[in-house]
Amino acid sequence: MTIKIDARGLSCPQPVVLTRQAMEKKQPPIEVLVDTVTARENVARMSRHFGWRVAIETLDDEFKLTLTK
């Protein structure tokens, strides 16, 4: 079961905090929706830092990050 996080419109570091909390509680994969390049970079950097693989999909002017372990 994929965990889905909608972090669109949230200021940093909330997308990172929500993703990190999902990582601590649940099993992969995690899907994170963000709408700024900054949030995309921050979530991706934090995920790689904790040993997760990151796949990024660009949807119009939003991004979907799929995180797997």
């Binding site: 940093c12 570091p13 990172v16 905090v17 990190r20 900054t38 921050n42 950097r45 934090m46 830092h49």
Partner: peptide
């Protein structure tokens, strides 16, 4: 995205 607050926050929050 240079930020002096974020610099300290990220160390405390996620050890980044």
């Amino acid at each position: 995205r240079f930020c002096t607050m974020g610099a300290i926050r990220d160390v405390i929050l996620i050890r980044d």
